[in-house]
Each structure stands twice: as C-alpha cells, then as structure tokens.
C-alpha cells in the first residue's frame, strides 16, 4: 500500500513571494504618490493651530442662520425630487433596451450599456459646472445635473432588476401573439414596479446628498449659501448649514427607508 505523497509548497509560496511583491508595489506606489502630491505631515502639524481655530468656530453653529437657509433647503429637496424623477423616466426605456432577457440584439445592448457606463463615469460636480455654463446660475442647472447623474445610476439598477424577472408570463403572452409593447406593459412592468420604486427612492436619497453641494458651483439650493459662508470665513454659519443638511438627509432617509420596507 502506497501512501500519498505529502503536499509540497512550491518555492514561491514557501518564501511568500506574492505577499512580498504586493507589499513592495504598495510601498512604491505610496512613495510615488506622496511625492506627486507633496504630502508633508509636518506642514499639517505646523498649521494645526489655524485648523483648530476653524474647528472651534464650527463647534458653535450660528443657530439664527437657520431662518436664512430654510428656503434654500426646500429648494434643494425640490431639485432632488425633480432631477431624480426626470432621470428615472428616461432610464426606463434605456434599461429595457439594455436587459439581455428582453433584447436579443447583442450589439444594440452593448452600445446602450457602453453609453450608460460613460454617463456613470462623470462626477456630479463636473456636470454641474458644465450645466451652469449652459443654463446660467440657478436651480435649472441643478435639476439637469441631477437628472443626468441619476439617469446613469438608475438605468443600471433597473436593467439588473429586469434581468432577474420570471420569464413565464412573457412566454405565455408571446405564445398568444402579444406585441412587444403589450408584453412589457402586462408581463414585465408588474414584476419590477415595486423594485423600481424602491431604487427610485434610494437614488432620491443619494441625490438629496449630492444636491447640497451642487450649489457650490452655482447650481442652486443650499450649496450657494455653503459657498457664501465659506468665502466669508463664516464657519459657524457653515456648521449650521452642515447640521441642517444632516437633518434633512436623515429625514429623507428615514421616510424613504420606511417606504421601501413597505414596498418590498
């Protein structure tokens, strides 16, 4: 009776070659990037007193500033609601075209997905800067920015939902000769509607967060006041804005979380 040979670790595993190589790569990248960014911890410590003054000011929010920012806060929420709605409305047809169980044409699907990927790479503030140049300073630029930003995100979430549906109802309808539009209306939408609404609310949460800084570049909402207070070195007002934003975000998150739990 022959015993199986003891497993042997190859040379590279015995000497932890992989771990050492990864660590070296990490250290080299770290060194390169601290050189490229001019990171200097001493400089931060040297200016620490200035930073502490700033933090102390922030620890005393200007409570009376609340009456000034209440209106722009509403505007921020309004921008988020409209932007998300427009984005989601455009996302529905695109997500149907991108779902592999509804569209068999590989090239069309690939093209649509590529466009969606491209849209998703653009940071929200970048879009805001461009749309402020087109639409001028104001909430229109903010709504358009949020619409495009949420379009990219929502369509990906939507087509992933569509790809998980039960194909039974679709085949049943196809076998009795229903048209594509009828199939989508009666067999696809009822299956995905709840999840669509849930993802819509989730995107709304993200957009409320995003819309609070869009105004920094002139795209309306509370961000305009954020920029004003920072430019005037009025950090207690900045702190108030951040606090008020936090409350709004928490309320929207709470409502949306509750609704999503009811839906699913």
């Amino acid at each position: 009776m022959s015993y199986p040979e003891m497993p042997q670790r190859p040379w590279s595993q015995r000497h932890h070659v992989r771990a050492i190589v990864w660590t070296l790569v990490l250290i080299i990248l770290l060194a390169l990037s601290s050189w490229a960014t001019g990171a200097d911890f001493g400089m931060f410590l040297a200016n620490l007193d200035q930073f502490t003054v700033l933090l102390v000011q922030m620890a005393h929010p200007a409570w009376d500033y609340l009456s000034v920012i209440i209106q722009p806060l509403y505007e921020t929420i309004q921008m988020a609601i409209l932007g998300t709605t427009i984005g989601a409305a455009f996302a529905i047809p695109f997500s149907i075209l991108a779902a592999h169980n509804l569209v068999s044409n590989k090239y069309l699907r690939g093209l649509i997905r590529f466009v969606l990927d491209l849209v998703r790479t653009l940071p929200d503030l970048l879009l805001a800067a461009i749309f402020v140049a087109v639409f001028g300073i104001g909430s229109t630029a903010g709504v358009v920015t949020l619409a495009i930003f949420s379009f990219g995100m929502v369509s990906k979430l939507f087509y992933e939902v569509i790809e998980t549906i039960d194909m039974g109802p679709l085949e049943a309808m196809k076998s009795v000769g229903a048209s594509k539009i009828t199939i989508i209306w009666y067999a696809v939408l009822p299956q995905v509607l709840n999840q669509f609404v849930s993802y819509f609310l989730y995107t709304l949460e993200i957009n409320v967060r995003a819309s609070t800084v869009l105004g920094y570049l002139g795209a309306g909402g509370i961000g305009v006041y954020l920029q004003r207070s920072l430019d005037q070195f009025n950090y207690s007002a900045t702190a108030m804005i951040i606090l008020a934003t936090l409350v709004v975000v928490m309320v929207i998150d709470g409502v949306s979380n509750h609704l999503r739990r009811v839906l699913l």
Binding site: G38, M43, N47, L48, F51, V213, L226
Partner: peptide, 16 residues
C-alpha cells in the same frame, strides 16, 4: 468639498 476648503486653509491650496 467642505473638508477640502477647510484643509486648504490649513495647508494651502494644492494636492495635499
């Protein structure tokens, strides 16, 4: 963005 502006006050504008 707010953090960035706060740190610019501390270490000056730039990638740091």
């Amino acid at each position: 963005i707010v953090l960035a502006i706060m740190f610019i006050k501390a270490v000056g504008p730039g990638s740091y």
